[in-house]
Simulated scan of single mutants.
Amino acid sequence: MSLSDRLTGVIPPLCTPLTPDGEVDTASLIRLVDHLTGAGVDGLFVLGSTSEAAFLTDRMRRTVTETVTAHVGGAVPVLAGAIDMTTPRVLDHARTALKAGADGIVATAPFYTRTHPAEIDRHFRLLAQETGAPVLAYDLPVAVHTKLSPDTVLALAADGVLAGIKDSSGDHDGLRQVIMARVPRFSVLTGSELLVDAALMMGADGVVPGFGNVDPAGYVRIVRYCAAGDWAAARAEQERLCSAFSIVHEGSPTRMGRGSAAIGAFKQALRLLGVIDHATTAEPQIPLSEAETDRVATHLTAAGLLR
């Protein structure tokens, strides 16, 4: 699969392993890439929400993209998030990522500034025009406070501006509208780890699962079961993953945000599995405690991932 084709299958948004002093741990990052590609994923997405892209400096973002693309060597497509507040800043990130070897760009609508739908439309058109690269829209209203309307997405797709969408909006009616009316070669990818079987049954092309860092093989199995029409097996695998995904709730909400709890749990899981060396999260996120990490291990054992 390349970006000349429609993106399909499992495209995990990579965690960014960090050293205890907060630098990119490139050796652990390479092991994470091998963990994912060895499980048979169809692509990789760096510098998304799960990557802690919002916390990384420009230098760190470049290091992540260069490390992953060099190691993959074109074996699978690499998408890079170009996520920032305004179009000029996003264009800077996009050009850097493409120079570092990324095959396509993933971008949200502008945020912080108040925007009109016409300005969102212009934002994506300028990204495609100025970079000449495939652009995927990232629908993430919980972070950017703007929901991409199906009409906007479909118009941009029809004009060849967008190569696809990562839908993390939670709007299943809107997702179905986009699936039903999409144009050829436009990829619809769900960002929900918990509803992959349902999204694929609706006609989505694949999934971008944060928990796919921890259990990529599970998501690969779901996609294969759905492709074969074995919906019972897909449902059983989805339910196993839903149970294991409960690790994101082990960080106490009395002392940390939901982001710290989720990213911290993913990183502790990867450390427990021997994939990365440290579970360090970027400042000012709060790390999981020893007791919370023990409960993460219990979930992994119950899911058959840790012995």
Rank of each mutant, 00 (worst) to 15 (best):
L241R: 06
P12F: 00
H299N: 11
A262P: 04
G40Q: 00
G304D: 07
T65K: 02
T87L: 11
Q268F: 14
F211M: 08
K147Q: 11
S169N: 03
T50G: 00
M202T: 12
S49L: 15
A204R: 00
A54G: 11
L288R: 02
A27T: 09
A236T: 05
T301F: 02
T87C: 05
D121Y: 03
Q285Y: 07
D21T: 12
D25L: 02
H249V: 13
F245H: 11
R235Y: 08
L189G: 14
D21E: 05
D42T: 10
V220G: 00
A236Y: 04
D21I: 06
A157S: 15
Y138E: 01
E193S: 12
T19D: 12
R59K: 12
A282I: 06
D215R: 00
I83W: 04
E23G: 02
L154M: 03
L44S: 09
V76N: 01
H299V: 05
S252H: 14
G264N: 14
T86M: 12
S192Y: 15
T301Q: 07
L162W: 13
L154N: 00
E119Y: 07
P20H: 04
F245R: 04
S260M: 09
E119K: 03
A94Q: 08
I83H: 13
M180H: 08
C15Q: 08
S51N: 03
M202N: 06
G174Y: 08
A82K: 01
Y112S: 01
D215A: 12
G38D: 01
D34Q: 14
A109K: 14
S246Q: 07
I247F: 06
M180Y: 05
L306Q: 15
A100S: 09
V161R: 00
K99R: 08
D84A: 10
P141K: 02
L175I: 06
E130C: 12
A163D: 15
S243I: 13
V208Y: 02
A82T: 04
R295G: 10
K166Q: 01
D25C: 13
L273A: 06
E239P: 10
E237A: 15
Q285K: 12
G210H: 03
V275A: 06
D139E: 12
R235N: 02
L305P: 01
A181Y: 07
V106N: 10
G304H: 15
T26L: 04
T298Q: 13
L44M: 06
T152H: 08
G206I: 06
G81W: 03
R6Y: 11
F245P: 09
G48S: 02
M180R: 05
R125G: 08
F186H: 06
L154D: 01
I247N: 07
E290P: 13
T96M: 11
G40C: 03
G218F: 03
P184Y: 07
Q129H: 10
L3I: 15
R307N: 03
L91C: 03
D151A: 15
S149G: 14
L194K: 10
T16F: 14
A236G: 05
D25I: 03
A265R: 00
R185F: 13
I286N: 00
T254W: 04
H123S: 09
V10L: 05
A27G: 07
T63K: 14
M256G: 12
